[in-house]
Design a protein around this nucleic acid. Structure first.
Lengths: 231, 231
DNA sequence: CGAGTCCTTGAGGTGAGTCAACTCGTGTGG
DNA sequence: CCACACGAGTTGACTCACCTCAAGGACTCG
């Protein structure tokens, strides 16, 4: 098996302050793996054995209710750590991580976490920054869910995805991973029907373009108006 | 000014592994203060200058939307750290902390945070456990808001408060701090009218007793049925 | 070409928000 | 000590945004 190249990590925040030899050490301990679209990397409630770094693809973090509904807590973009339960002293994963597109991720056994934070300058700092950002994002979502109407929530969800993992094209900002109306409704606590109606209406007004499993935001500023500012 | 007694901290998780001399050091750096009901300890967006430990009372963590609505993100019970923005590498507070009852809290300047985590065994660990728990709680709330009907959300909110800060009495579990219908609606993303109707109905059925700014859960198990299990 | 997803659109019902009017309890000030 | 004001809570009537139910169309893959 060929060695992983150091350039994989050198630009990423948790590792940016480290030298090549240190990155080499870390890489030599990592297990790389590919995950097909739709497969689970780990499941809610399972023992937290490893923590992960996403190199490519998109991860969808999902929580399931006792009654079987599922809601999408957040998406994770390449370059981010995930499954960092150990950082929070948890021994099980709080949610399921699923590959929203084909993904490649590195992983390490949790027992290395403590050593990483102690040994590598900036690793702990940057990891906790990530946690802080996610916490902030979750607070924002709580506020949205509690105060905004469905239309605004869907608009906000689209914009968030466009910002986090979007790619600029001449048509607008394209959401780079496959996404169904059902997925969007799982993010916003509504139904696929309502999402479908909204997207249809927005398409007529030229705010978005969508095809099967694929959305492009063509007029982000106008969408932003819709969701009552913020984010 | 009389010195703070070491017993204030010795039982609390973040400090439980420390010896008396270490606790003495920490206390000598702390600034104790009293906060009247309704006053703000710090405000959303303000520069994070200090972090806090609640000794007595209850803190309400609030986020305000651009349109002026406010929602209650969580409550904090005595013995917990709060305003720990520095732990997450934030330089501003992500939400407002308000005294839901008369409170007493210690605080330290953020520049000490790093030293605390480095010097005191268990401090970092326990602090991050707290963060992890709050993150989990927020996820649960997102799921609730997204999937549950208003009735279930209100039931869940009451139970959560009863669990976290409730006191057992012969009548049932009493929520120990003043709480209005408006407050409850701010937690659950509904209106004070709806909460009022629900509480009235529940009172008739013997699930709760409530007076002005005061709620006692008399039949927690039956409430739990209502909210469709979980928490 | 058939089966499985994914998406669309209509019709109808309803949970919970809005509007409005009133009561009750508490604290304040003349 | 009364009255008055204000905040908190109650309750009814109305309305509408969104869900549910239902049917059918379109794309994709084996």
């Amino acid at each position: 098996m060929s060695k992983l190249d150091e350039s994989l990590l050198s630009g990423l925040p948790p590792f940016s302050r480290l030298g090549r030899p240190q990155i080499r050490e870390i890489l030599d301990l990592a297990v790389p793996r590919r995950y097909d679209t739709g497969s689970a990397i780990f499941r809610e409630g399972a023992e937290a054995e490893r923590f992960y770094l996403l190199l490519d693809g998109v991860i969808r973090v999902i929580r399931t209710t006792p009654t079987g509904e599922q809601i999408i807590a957040l998406h994770i973009a390449p370059g981010q750590l995930f499954g960092i339960a150990p950082a929070l002293q948890r021994d099980t994963y709080p949610a399921t991580a699923m590959a929203a597109a084909d993904c490649v991720a590195l992983s390490w056994p949790v027992r290395l976490w403590h050593g990483f934070t102690a040994k590598y300058d900036g690793f702990a700092t940057e990891s906790y920054r990530t946690v802080g950002e996610r916490l902030g994002e979750m607070q924002t979502r709580i506020v949205e869910l509690a105060t905004k109407a469905v239309e605004q929530r869907v608009a906000a969800a689209l914009l968030r995805m466009a910002n986090q993992t979007g790619r600029k094209t001449e048509e607008g900002i394209e959401i780079t991973f496959p996404i169904t109306r059902q997925n969007i409704s799982d993010m916003t606590g509504t139904t696929l029907h309502t999402v479908s109606r909204l997207l249809s209406a927005w398409e007529k007004e030229g705010l978005v373009k969508s095809t099967r499993k694929h959305v492009v935001v063509t007029a982000p500023h106008r969408l932003m108006m819709l969701c009552g500012a913020v984010d």
